[in-house]
Design a protein around this nucleic acid. Structure first.
Lengths: 279, 279
DNA sequence: GAGATTCTGTGAGCCAATTCACATTGTGAT
DNA sequence: ATCACAATGTGAATTGGCTCACAGAATCTC
């Protein structure tokens, strides 16, 4: 049922975890293969039945793609959409998968990433509710170039490729909106490249923390608390360095009174100080 | 006439060249300020008058944005378009400029880049004839986030922002095409990020050479000759490393029989060998 | 709430790539 | 053809960040 040449990618994934799990490789691979793109329709969870369409519509209103779009256009989108629940750590798709659907993220976070044969991983984005994703490869009808994985228990809308294409053709203003969203992402990733070339790790890390404080921050008496709760490994993947380096530099930031760490909760104590590190 | 706070950017630019030019800073800055976005309409060159519109249309046919688009749609584009000649080394726009126009590249190459306060520079793309550029910031109506500079004597089409917006609104199929083009660019720059994170300099350089061989290569008896003629500095800006490192690694490639260097002309002798370096 | 596992902190040693400093070669104007 | 400048080659010294290795802390899981 599934495309067969995942093998190389899956092997990596397995290798990476084998040292810890040891002996469960096969099981783990089977789990990974169940990416949404590959799952048969029957396997779809119960949400489908239990959620009313008014519920679906409510969620659509909160999708950035439909900002400023007429309710009737949204209603039409609602018709071609299927709601699904994806559990934490489940992949939605893997590199090389056929690009059969576009997704709208309603609840929870999704990580868009890719990994090298060595096992090293880059995270391109961590998406928050309201985002569209998976549309790039669908537009060009090429296989997935990245992986998408649920970071929390998530709720997503799935739009089959054909319906999406058709919908865009009939709703030019949504197309324009989509173009702008993709453009925004392009700009964001351009500044990622700048970061990698211009800045050293402390500066990149400071930059990441400041970005997170904008999108994810809650101001409290001590400073800006980040709701994100990323592991050092995840931060390393976001800024392109090793896990150990993140640990070290975060420790320095703590010692310098720039941040506070309480378990996995980070609070920014001195925003200005961090900004100064950007150069 | 011009926005005034170029100062910081211009200072960098000047500083960078001052060690060599010394004393001509002011003159150089004045030259730079004449970026197209800022130039008054009268300053426009003579091409405007001398080129017939059939000529313009001929060029439009070769723009990727209009692949598969009807001639009538092209004709309408032709109406809102102004042709301009930009001399080698002239900037079209600088970071921070108001985003007043979208450009179509007809002849010559254009470099999209950005530089850090330190003087270090990243090159995002070197555009060949047929490309659209400058549309990102226009779509979102934000100031330029990059600079665009003519690498050769070029011929471009200028589309004022308002006309472009209007045109897109009335030509949904062009909008879809544009979305795809931007999507393609997004994918390309994602793989740039992967390069920077996953690969070392020799691998990145090999990758660059192989890419150039695809877009710019001419096969002759010895191998694939690159028409590009980039300096080592320009290559360094493309792969994110220092000029000296490019010189050294290129020397190694030569010694290993992978490439041949004849002045600024590079010929790839052993494509397979270079590919092996990609890991 | 105990046990398993996954994360974090830290130090030692290493190496790719940078910076700096020149000598040399190439190139474009005139 | 000449001259000025730009681009290249190379070597020494330095260093940021990586890898490896392990101890301790925090977090899941049942």
């Amino acid at each position: 049922m599934c495309k067969l040449d995942y093998s190389s990618f899956l092997k990596r994934q397995c290798d990476k975890r084998t040292f810890a799990v040891d002996g469960y490789e096969e099981m783990y691979c089977l789990m990974l293969q169940k990416s949404l793109d590959c799952r048969s329709q029957q396997a779809v969870d119960h949400m489908e039945q239990s959620s009313s369409s008014t519920n679906k519509l409510w969620y659509l209103k909160h999708i950035r793609l439909f900002d400023g779009i007429s309710p009737s256009d949204m209603q039409e989108m609602e018709k071609i959409t299927r709601m699904e629940e994806v559990k934490k750590r489940q992949p939605l798709y893997l590199p090389g998968d056929p690009s059969s659907s576009v997704y709208l993220l309603k609840k929870g976070r999704v990580k868009i990433a890719n990994s090298a044969p060595s096992g090293k991983e880059v995270t391109f984005e961590i998406l928050e509710p309201g985002e569209v994703f998976g549309e790039l490869e669908v537009l060009e009808d090429t296989p997935r170039s990245t992986s998408a994985e649920a970071l929390d228990d998530t709720l997503i809308c799935v739009i089959p490729r054909k319906d999406f294409d058709q919908y865009l053709a009939m709703h030019p203003n949504v197309t324009v909106k989509l173009t702008k969203l993709i453009g925004l992402r392009l700009r964001k990733i351009q500044s990622r490249v700048e970061d990698l070339v211009f800045r050293d790790v402390p500066a990149r890390l400071a930059h990441l923390l400041l970005e997170l404080s904008k999108t994810d921050g809650v101001t409290d008496k001590q400073g800006i608390r980040l709701k994100a709760k990323l592991t050092h490994q995840e931060m390393a993947n976001l800024i392109g360095c090793s896990r150990e380096t993140v640990s070290t530099i975060m420790g320095q930031f703590r010692d310098d009174g720039l941040i506070q760490m309480d378990g996995r909760t980070i609070t920014i104590l001195n925003e200005k100080g961090l900004s100064r590190l950007l150069g």
